[in-house]
C-alpha cells in the first residue's frame, strides 16, 4: 500500500507541474499578452510595451514560469494590478471562506445521498422522490438554485438574510445561519451526482451473497444496510469525490457570487472582470493544483479504505 501511495504521489507532481505550466503558457503566450488583457483592447502598442517591460512579460515564457513558481514558493504571488495589494494576502483572506463552504457542502451532499439511499424505509418509500431530487441536483444551475432560495427564504418568507456571509466573529449562530443557503446551493449538484453513483453501487452490492448471509445471521435490515452494504457501496464514491472536484470549484465560484461571499471564487470573478492578470493567474494556478491534490487525496483515501488493496 505504501508503495502505491508513493507511486501516486510521484505521478501527481509531474501532473501538477505540467498542468500549471500549460495554464501559464496558455494565458501568457497562446491566448495573447497579459498586458493586452490588462489594458484592454484599444491600448496603444507603446503602453503595452511599457507594461511588458515593467512586469517582465517580454522575457521567454519558460523564464517567466520559473520565476513565478520560485516566487510562489516564497509566498510571493505578485501584486494585484487594480488594488496593488499583495495577491498572496488576498488569497489567504479568501480561502477559508471557500474551504468552509466546500467542506460543508460535500458533507451535506454525501450524507444526504447515503442516508436516502441506504435507510430501508426511505429506500422503499422515497425512490421516486430521490430520483427527482437527483435530477434537480444535477440539472438546475447553481445560480438558479441560489436565486430561488433567496427569493423563497429571504424575499418571500423573510426567514433568512439574503446576503450570505458573516464572519465567525459575529457569533457562530449568525455565521451558520448565513451559511445555510450557500451550502444548500452548492451541495445540490453534489447530492445528485453522489446519489446516482451511490445508488447504482448500492443496488449492485445488495445483490451480493454476503448480504443474504448477513440476513441469515439474524441481523436487522438496518444493520445489514448500514454495516454490510454501505461500506462496500461507498468505496467507489470516494474516488468520485476526487473526480468531481473540478465541477465543485466551478459551482463554488457561482455560489459565492450569488451570495456575495468574500471567497476565492468571487475574488477570481472580480479579477476576471477587472482584467487583473496576476490575481487571475494566481487563483487559476491554485485551483488547478488544489484539484489535482484533492484527486490524489481521494485516491489515497480509497486505497486506505479498501482492505483488498490495503493488504496486497
Amino acid at each position: 500500500m505504501i508503495t502505491m501511495i508513493v507511486r501516486r504521489l510521484l505521478t501527481a507532481l509531474p501532473t501538477i507541474a505540467a498542468s500549471t505550466a500549460l495554464l501559464f503558457f496558455s494565458v501568457t503566450v497562446i491566448l495573447g499578452s497579459p498586458a493586452g488583457m490588462m489594458l484592454g483592447q484599444d491600448a496603444s502598442p507603446q503602453a503595452i510595451a511599457a507594461l511588458n517591460e515593467k512586469y517582465g512579460f517580454d522575457r521567454p515564457a519558460l523564464v517567466q514560469y520559473g520565476a513565478w513558481v520560485a516566487n510562489a514558493f516564497q509566498g510571493d504571488l505578485g501584486r494585484s494590478f487594480t488594488t496593488q495589494q499583495s495577491v498572496s494576502r488576498a488569497i489567504t483572506d479568501c480561502i477559508p471562506v471557500t474551504i468552509e463552504l466546500t467542506l460543508w457542502s460535500i458533507l451535506l451532499a454525501a450524507s444526504a445521498a447515503i442516508v436516502l439511499n441506504t435507510i430501508p424505509v426511505f429506500k422503499r418509500t422515497l425512490t421516486g422522490a430521490t430520483t427527482l431530487a437527483n435530477l434537480i441536483g444535477i440539472t438546475v444551475p447553481n445560480f438558479m438554485l441560489g436565486i430561488s432560495l433567496i427569493f423563497l427564504f429571504s424575499v418571500w418568507l423573510g426567514w433568512l438574510p439574503s446576503n450570505g456571509w458573516a464572519p465567525w466573529s459575529d457569533g457562530a449562530g449568525e455565521h451558520l445561519r448565513r451559511m445555510i443557503m450557500p451550502v444548500l446551493t452548492l451541495s445540490a449538484y453534489y447530492f445528485g451526482a453522489f446519489s446516482i453513483v451511490y445508488r447504482a453501487e448500492y443496488r449492485d452490492v445488495a445483490q451480493r451473497m454476503f448480504i443474504q448471509v448477513a440476513l441469515a445471521k439474524g441481523l436487522s435490515e438496518w444493520k445489514v444496510a448500514f454495516k454490510h452494504a454501505l461500506p462496500n457501496a461507498v468505496l467507489p464514491v470516494i474516488t468520485f469525490v476526487g473526480i468531481s472536484m473540478g465541477q465543485l470549484t466551478g459551482g463554488a465560484v457561482v455560489t459565492e457570487t450569488v451570495f456575495s461571499m468574500p471567497g476565492t471564487g468571487r475574488l477570481f470573478v472580480s479579477a476576471i472582470s477587472g482584467h487583473d492578470f496576476p490575481v487571475v493567474l494566481a487563483v487559476g494556478m491554485l485551483v488547478v493544483t488544489g484539484v489535482i491534490v484533492m484527486n490524489l487525496l481521494a485516491d489515497i483515501a480509497y486505497t486506505i479504505a479498501n482492505p483488498q488493496i490495503r493488504f496486497d
Binding site: R208, M209, F210, Q212, V213, A214, L215, A216, K217, G218, L219, S220, E221, H228, P231, N232, L235, N306, P307, Q308
Partner: peptide, 27 residues
C-alpha cells in the same frame, strides 16, 4: 413477526451458501 424471525435466523436455523467467494463481506 420480523423481530421473531431474526431470532430464528442464525440462532435456530443457520445457512451456508454456494458461493464461498462472495459469502463473506470483503471489508
Amino acid at each position: 413477526s420480523a423481530r421473531d424471525l431474526r431470532q430464528v435466523r442464525g440462532n435456530e436455523i443457520a445457512m451456508i451458501f454456494q458461493e464461498p467467494m462472495s459469502s463473506l463481506n470483503p471489508v
